[in-house]
Design a protein around this nucleic acid. Structure first.
Length: 1133
RNA sequence: GGGCGCAUAGCUCAGUUGGUUAGAGCGCGUCCCUGAUAAGGACGAGGUCUGAAGUUCGACUCUUCAUGCGCCCA
């Protein structure tokens, strides 16, 4: 016996019970144990940060991350799923600062680095509980209690190991990085923060003369005209940039003695600004100007270095600075076409400096000029402005330019400029900071080669967004001047500058003369609850110093920086195991590398997807030049560290806008779970669109999932259970011993179970559909295509519910036990058991609930304890009957066409009709269809079905060319053939084809021979018949009605009315009733009289008469336009 | 400003190497069923496939440009 199924199911409630069951029985663990010896399917969890609440986008990611491991587990792989948490980084610090009400680094330092990072640690796990609840509620099976955590000492040491490897190979170096700098706060801002702070402001806009030095004769007394909106950067000028292929003009300005050079395209614009006449004397290209020297507006540096030259790599010498250089970024959108370059205060300017420096021999080229200190104030190198905030000096600088005659023009310029989002009055400046870099650009080709082997879904990521990003790879700016992160493990000799990297804490402690650990020990003593892991964090680690091997008495001190937290997460393939320092980590790493599958959203392309690939390529590359292949850095064939990557689309809110808490344009996941359940959400994610399309989160669509799929499935399940219990269909009583996964061969052991071949066609058909669906699901899911797999599952459910069950109803209702009835039960039972397994990875809760009742509920512990411990059904080729599938599809189409014809003729299905005629395009299945006419008769309520072919009275033929065949063969002739066939007598052509097997067309000068395969015949219903045409057939309705048919139709109308009344009166199904009719129309009376037996039988009427019943209310009916009074009450006996 | 992607029914979305009639669900309309029943089902209306040009015998599909939207980077 099965447990009765509640008529109105609450999926959320059901899911809670299943979660409890999984937890208590350790089903996830059992699913892993069952695959202990199986080949592994490697999954990497991209670690989320738990310092914010999870939102619907995380649900999508976690659903996809659950789906494929579940699926692969059922397919026979062992898929360990280790959770992870990303814990470091600026976002964490920002959260803590908010909480403390402080902003700047200075404030953090005065608050105390020690309590600050302790706060960070607390903050990191603020929402862990919510994340863990969501993970479990969503049915995401992953080992949360074994999660890797990026701040843990073991994890940090793995990162250190990797960094030491890079350092020792010369791939870690120190350089400058131009950052958006909040000078007052002493902090660099991330691009996201900068983006938040743009405001429209008016800045001074100055046009400055750079007089040429030693120009060619005709350009004596000529100045470059340069434009800038940051006058304070002019003292740090190093170059003037032009675009080589741009045309420039030498112009003479009315009333001035010196000439100017500006971009030709801007001459008029600038002239208009000054309301002066400009006269063009000559033109030249940017290319010609390259190398020309000029005198900068301030001589703080020029005075010392102006004449300095350096040796070039190509030979020869050149002045190191104050020259015209080429730059592609120069535009004529604004300014003069000549761009002032202050490399210290502009990222592109800095690139120009690097490019220039690269042309010189080492240490011969230009160094960075920076007249501003980190606090945003001028240094002693610009004594005139020393100690003053740069922006405050703009006015004075302009005045000085004016007095020296180098200011050409000045105005206000309104543009967007970034301000600090935390201190709105503080404008940001671009500023150079010393930074550590990884030489990733040296590995560009290897990264591209690695990338080329990765299976990206969607595919365009490989060549597109990700490929392009790799193509333009620049060295990874690794270090951060922050507090809460993995400390950069490099110690520097305070005297000589000698540096070395340290791979772990033990190695550090073994250094000669090590000291400073007492800082941590003291902290630990005063707060014994401090996590041990903190000891390798700032500030404790900074206190640890040791003797320099290079200078007696000097100490090695750690550089102050921490690293980019993307390096942390990108190191997870090995760091999650504490590789290589933890015992056993080498084996774990080797067995779990590379990953078969990872998935995150599109925004991770340059984040995690990149950091994983870059670190892995740098460490584990097998290219000859880079090969290391030692004990800890094995050379591994591409791709690594991931083979398949689903790049999820971004999720938008209900209104198509970015999801935002304040806009409230989405429903919280927890509410979705409570209202509709996790399966509804999951099915919505999996079945609604391919995962990489950007998806608009829609509560309505999630809700609709329930009736569309879950409830429909539930109804079939409930149908089976109801009738199985009524009829005493009890599989457990018929099968002895262990039954395990209840596969078909186990079911076959049942006494009442007949082999498929002996069962009826409908049974064979649905089993064929079931196995086809299994095969398709496996094929699609192996290709990571959950969307199409879901479509196939939905299709099967439709066939099962709307055709198999509907067509089999009376088999389940029939009173006596029979072999056919048993077939119906076994068939539906098998379908439902297999469906449970098919849907288990997608909607694990519903699948489990049904399995628990249909399998475990009946068999107890003789059956597999959970559907998730079963193998995924692959589909049995022997059970698939393609012909039968096609035939049944044709029947379903004919029925559908018949209904369309009925609607068209306004003949409702209640009205029986004499016959339909079905004209088939293709007679292949005709005799089979004839044998199944009964099915069509019932569905269409007709007395007879005829299949015919020659039916010119109802239809006309159209002969069409098979374009796919003929297109490549005929090419240009095709339109003529089409035209000919369209106008030809199709019947005659077909007759000829039948006779000769081919048709020869004379088209102009060409002869074209067509055989039967080249033509397709289409049928068209002729006007005047109630007919409907489909692809395979035309269905013609005989609309002629005999008296008997009309009477039967009327009787069915009455039955319909009586049944409605039964329901209205809340009678039990078995209640017998009395019916009285008051009816004036003789034709109705005759009809009811004639079909009285039918009416009695259908409605369980025991007393039937033509008179009002005293105990019943009169119901007025309208049947065929006539009034009928209907009285219904329970029968007296 | 650069890169990538998207644009199909009122709404949310499919559309498999270019092929004759572009599909689904919801909503809407008409109807059916009433022993899965506070369910279920059928049928129908609704589309210049964003616009323009090109390639091709043939374009929703390929190319280019334009427009709008999104993301990433500047």
């Amino acid at each position: 016996m099965f447990r009765p199924v509640e008529s109105s199911v609450s999926f959320p409630q059901l899911e809670q019970q299943i979660i409890e069951f999984w937890r208590q029985q350790g089903i996830y663990e059992k699913s892993l144990e069952a695959r202990a010896a199986a080949p592994s399917f490697v999954f990497y969890e991209g670690p989320p940060t738990a310092n914010g609440l999870p939102h619907p986008g995380h649900c999508l990611t976690r659903s996809i991350k659950d789906l494929f491991p579940r699926y692969r587990t059922m397919r026979g792989y062992r898929c360990d799923r280790k959770a992870g948490w990303d814990t470091h980084g600026l976002p964490v610090e920002v959260e803590v600062c908010k909480e403390l009400g402080i902003h700047s680094k200075e404030e953090i330092e005065s608050y105390g680095v020690e309590p600050f990072i302790q706060k960070c640690l607390e903050s990191v796990f603020r929402y862990t509980q919510q994340w863990e609840q969501l993970t479990e509620r969503l049915g995401f099976w992953i080992h949360l209690d074994e999660a890797y955590v990026t701040y843990h000492q073991s994890y940090v040491e793995s990162v250190w190991w990797a960094l030491k490897n890079l350092f020792d190979r010369g791939l870690l170096y120190r350089g400058h990085k131009i950052v958006w700098w909040w000078a007052q706060g002493g902090t660099a801002l991330s691009s996201g923060e900068v983006g938040q702070g743009y405001r429209e402001v008016a800045d001074p806009s100055v046009y400055v003369r750079f007089p040429l030095v030693d120009p060619p004769g005709e350009l004596r007394d000529t100045d470059l005209l340069v434009w800038t909106t940051t006058p304070w950067t002019l003292p740090s000028n190093q170059f003037a940039a032009v675009k080589p292929d741009l045309e420039y003009s030498v112009v003479r300005v009315e009333g001035e003695s010196r000439k100017l050079i500006v971009a030709s395209a801007l001459v008029e614009t600038i002239a208009a600004k000054l309301k002066k006449e400009f006269q063009v004397e000559s033109t030249l290209t940017g290319l010609e100007m390259i190398g020309w020297r000029y005198r900068p507006p301030f001589d703080y540096y020029y005075k010392k270095q102006g004449q300095q030259t350096g040796r070039l790599r190509d030979g020869g010498k050149q002045h190191i600075a104050w020259r015209v250089v080429a730059a592609e970024f120069v535009t004529i959108d604004s300014g003069t076409g000549l761009v002032h370059q202050a490399p210290a205060f502009g990222e592109v300017d800095y690139d120009v400096l690097l490019a220039e420096r690269a042309r010189f021999e080492d240490a011969e080229g230009p160094s960075l000029i920076c007249s501003v200190a980190a606090d945003g104030k001028f240094t002693a190198e610009t004594p005139q402005y020393q100690g003053r905030w740069v922006k405050d000096c703009d006015r004075e600088i302009i005045r000085q330019l004016k007095s020296e005659g180098t200011l050409f023009h000045q105005e206000q310029y309104v543009h967007d400029y970034p301000f600090c989002w935390r201190a709105e009055e503080d404008p940001l400046i671009q500023y150079p900071r010393q930074s550590w870099f990884i030489r990733t650009s040296q590995f560009k080709d290897l990264m591209l080669a690695n990338n080329a082997r990765i299976n990206w879904l969607p595919e365009h990521i490989r060549e597109g967004r990700f490929g392009n990003f790799l193509e333009t790879n620049v060295d990874w700016a690794l270090s951060r001047e922050r507090f809460w992160g993995t400390p950069l493990p490099i110690w520097v000799c305070e005297k000589t500058g000698y540096m070395e990297a340290v791979a772990n804490y033990a190695e550090l402690l073994a250094k000669p003369g090590v000291g400073g650990t007492e800082v941590w020990e003291a902290a630990k003593q005063s707060r014994p609850d401090l996590a041990e892991d903190l000891k390798i964090h700032k500030p404790y680690i900074d206190a640890v110093t040791y003797d320099s091997p290079k200078a007696a008495g000097a100490r090695m001190r750690r550089v102050g920086d921490v690293i980019d937290c993307w390096f942390d997460s990108g190191a997870m393939p090995f760091a999650q195991w504490g590789y290589p320092h933890q015992p056993g980590s080498r084996e774990r790493f080797r067995s779990q590398f590379p990953a078969d599958f990872i998935s995150e959203a599109l925004d991770q392309t340059r984040g995690w997807f990149y950091s994983l690939l870059a670190i892995s390529t740098l460490l584990f590359s097998e290219d000859e030049d880079q090969k290391q292949d030692d004990a800890t850095t094995p050379a591994v064939a591409y791709p690594h560290p991931y083979r398949n990557c689903i790049v999820l689309g971004l999720m938008l809110g209900e209104d198509g806008q970015k999801m935002s808490k304040s806009k409230r344009n989405y429903r919280e996941p927890t509410e979705i779970f409570d209202r509709y359940g996790a399966d509804a959400l999951r099915w919505y994610f999996f079945s609604n669109q391919p995962p990489w399309t950007s998806i608009r989160y829609s509560e309505r669509a999630i809700k609709e999932t329930i009736p569309e799929f879950l409830l429909r499935l539930w109804n079939v399940y409930s149908f089976l259970v109801i009738y199985a219990n009524i009829d005493g269909f009890d599989p457990a009583a018929q099968i002895a011993g262990q039954v395990g996964q209840l596969t078909p061969d186990v079911l076959a052991r049942a006494a009442g179970y007949r082999p498929l071949a002996e069962r009826g066609e409908l049974d064979r058909w649905i089993v064929s559909e079931l196995n086809r669906t299994c095969a398709a699901a496996v094929k699609r899911m192996d290709a990571y295509d959950n969307f199409t797999a879901c479509a196939r599952l939905t299709e099967f459910l439709d066939a099962l519910s709307n055709w198999y069950v509907r067509r089999s109803r009376d088999r389940f209702w029939s009173g006596q036990a029979s072999a056919d009835k048993a077939d119906a039960y076994w068939t539906l039972y098998e379908c439902m058991l297999t469906t449970c397994k098919l849907i288990a990875p997608f909607v694990p809760f519903v699948a489990e609930a049904m399995w628990q009742n249909m399998a475990v509920g009946d068999f107890g512990d003789r059956a597999a304890q959970s559907v998730h411990l079963c193998d995924y059904p692959q589909g049995e080729p022997a059970a698939i009957d393609e012909t039968l599938s096609q035939r049944m599809a044709t029947v379903r189409e004919i029925v559908s066409l018949g209904r369309a014809a009925r609607m068209d003729a306004k003949l409702k299905v209640r009205q029986p009709l004499a016959r339909v005629e079905v004209v088939l395009v293709d007679p292949t299945h005709q005799s089979w269809l004839e044998d199944h006419a009964g099915l069509i008769r019932e569905e269409l309520n007709v007395k007879q079905v005829d299949f015919i072919q020659k039916a010119e009275q109802y239809i006309s033929y159209t002969v069409l060319p098979d374009l796919k065949r003929l297109g490549p063969r005929l090419g240009r002739q095709l339109p003529a053939v089409r035209k000919y066939l369209a106008s030809a007598d199709a019947a005659a052509l077909l007759a000829q084809m039948e006779k000769d097997g081919q048709i020869v067309l004379q088209l102009g000068g060409d002869r074209v021979t067509l055989d039967g395969e080249d033509l397709q015949v289409r049928l068209q219903a002729k006007e005047g018949w109630s007919a409907a045409q489909g692809r395979s057939s035309v269905v013609v309705l005989s609309t002629e009605l005999t008296d008997a048919l009309v009477q039967e139709g009327l009787a069915r109308e009455l039955v319909h009315a009586i049944q409605n009344q039964r329901k209205e009166n809340n009678y039990e199904y078995t209640d017998r009733i009395a019916v009285g009719l008051v009816c004036d129309a003789p034709e109705l009376c005759v009809a009811f009289e004639a079909f009285a037996d039918y009416i009695r039988a259908e409605t369980l009427t025991v007393e039937f008469g033509f008179a009002a019943l005293p105990d019943a209310q009169a119901i007025e009916l309208d049947i065929a336009g006539q009034k009928v009074g209907l009285y219904v009450c329970k029968a007296t006996e």
